[in-house]
Design a protein around this nucleic acid. Sequence first.
DNA 1: GTGTCGGCCGTCTGCCGACAA
DNA 2: TTGTCGGCAGACGGCCGACAC
Lengths: 401, 401
Amino acid sequence: MRLSSSSTSSAGFNPQPEEGEKKCLNSELWHACAGPLVSLPQFGSRVVYFPQGHSEQVTASTNKEVDATIPNYPGLSPQLICQLHNVTMHADVETDEVYAQMTLQPLSPEEQKDICLLPAELGTPSKQPTNYFCKTLTASDTSTHGGFSVPRRAAEKVFPPLDYSQTPPCQELIAKDLHGNEWKFRHIFRGQPKRHLLTTGWSVFVSAKRLVAGDSVIFIWNENNQLLLGIRRANRPQAVMPSSVLSSDSMQIGLLAAAAHAAATNSRFTIFYNPRASPSEFVIPLAKYAKAVYHTRVSVGMRFRMLFETEESSVRRYMGTITGIGDLDPVRWPNSHWRSVKVGWDESTAGERQPRVSLWEIEPLTTFPMYPSPFSLRLKRPWPSGLPSFPGLKDSGDMNL
Amino acid sequence: MRLSSSSTSSAGFNPQPEEGEKKCLNSELWHACAGPLVSLPQFGSRVVYFPQGHSEQVTASTNKEVDATIPNYPGLSPQLICQLHNVTMHADVETDEVYAQMTLQPLSPEEQKDICLLPAELGTPSKQPTNYFCKTLTASDTSTHGGFSVPRRAAEKVFPPLDYSQTPPCQELIAKDLHGNEWKFRHIFRGQPKRHLLTTGWSVFVSAKRLVAGDSVIFIWNENNQLLLGIRRANRPQAVMPSSVLSSDSMQIGLLAAAAHAAATNSRFTIFYNPRASPSEFVIPLAKYAKAVYHTRVSVGMRFRMLFETEESSVRRYMGTITGIGDLDPVRWPNSHWRSVKVGWDESTAGERQPRVSLWEIEPLTTFPMYPSPFSLRLKRPWPSGLPSFPGLKDSGDMNL
DNA sequence: GTGTCGGCCGTCTGCCGACAA
DNA sequence: TTGTCGGCAGACGGCCGACAC
């Protein structure tokens, strides 16, 4: 049983969205918890929604493969161009898990005929806060025997400065979590050798959030001199709920039926995006999609790079080679760009990485200029002939970007 | 995030279903936790499934009214006659909340033409265990300051007898919860005046299950000399999860789409029934439905009785008067028997009780014989003419019961 | 008959520097 | 630089009968 605290935020960049009615959910903190690679599309922009990706998220969350005979939704394209009417950031009250709620409206055929992208619709990378640190908790950090050992650089960078003339130097820290709840900690600099510690208040936080060794905490010191505090749980290889509310089969069907109905009637529908549960983002800025699909030449054998998040919440590149291009599910989702690229990874520890990726996730290594200025982007024949598309767009003419 | 421990059980009456592969979920305990009024339909029997009722359960679970424009499923009848292929009892690993999973298959038009009910399909009332007790926890019971005070009659009825010659008499009790986990308690008879107490082991149970004052515990002493232990949480008036997996709108659509697809293709679909979250049962034995709908005369002004569960897990009757008969939702669900009876309740505290009930929930007070022998039941013109029904059944002839 | 409390003892929480990796 | 430990003091857990409703 879960609640969610939420706050509406237009584009995901409100430093302190004080909306009044609801408790403020800090955007910086949300993004810090979501990870460096996660960016939410801009409010008001056009996006491409992938039912397959959404389905993957539900599969991952319910930990159950689809086994029922899912009805066909012949009218449902594998990629829907949508107007993004609302993006709100949320956090599960029980687990502090971050997720976003988006309201999408599939574009009508007329609206799709003349799409002019705004520069903003390219999608700004999520602004990672500058003064923050993320530490994976040790056994000592989570034990009842002691407090939290703060890495020295982290303490000096994100905590308010201590008065080192006192012995020992100490202060009270107040940090706000994703729900706006405040947590008080005694910050002290002591021991031999000297180190920064959080003592009083730490253990109640650990037990309240049910943190265990391996989970991570994030401290942020923002421009408004607020201390923010988020958590990121370790990827426990546990099975998750069959929900006891609705069968996973019905959830899979519901996701497709909701999208199909919205597409058929050009009405709005609502989805949840859980960045840490979902294998891949499935709501992509239209410009990013168009660039990748129509302005990038890929072929079997081509080398590419792709960004991944490390365990320390930073980013690193992995290299790979394209080994094939084709439909992930030729029967149910023919001509889909979702995970249409089969890849091999350079490193032997590549078992964890997907064997299939989508075009917009990778950066092919070519000699051609990869990213021309977005203002000069112009699409000729957006959909390859023969590809199923939206009504009114099949074999249509130009699409202005 | 939740797991579920489960056990397959043919009809819900296996005293100890040792299925091997999965942990045994005790049927008696499941029914004790579900409540005295809950009975599961028999495996293999025919049932009537009500999408409206299922929808109400999802609404109650997600605590969110339907606000999206739900697509119409014109082919979906408000009541589907189904073969019940599977009933399994489950318990949420996080909360111990009981629920049932059922696999339903809508009958084909041919199968519906000649329905012969077996006597067993009348639905046996759930066998409540004899030696059990249910106590609502007090502040003292859940406080860390002490143990659990066992009501004297309860202890004498369901706990193994103590050797009263010892001073003080005490023993170790081992009780199995819904997941098969064992809990050990020190049972002692001491104090002035003497009373039964559970001391050592009680507090770990309380904290592990996160019990608070107002929740209830159930102890059962079954025929196999096993002590079983279940919990029933108080109806916290809390909002529950919007699930962060799928929007409640999509869940509502998914439930309908899954049922509509199954009905159209006569294929199986799976539902979860949560007896404590759902306002009413929405999978009803066919015989019970038929009796109520075709063999009961009700009219406005008629008096009736209806059973409710008390806070002490027993049963009491409430009296009321029928104030109207008609569709709950004439637009989306015309000619549905779901909550077709508008009622007024005699007692002023009736605010908690539904203003609308279904025919099979009530017991009208008439001078006619209410329940003829099931073997002599015979249906003439099962569906009132003009009522939409299943293909092939409209205005069809007799239906043998 | 049973809910709550004061009293009392024992365990565990939680703060400290030592020490080593 | 920081993870873990032994030492220690105080808080809280938890078992008891008293007492009242």
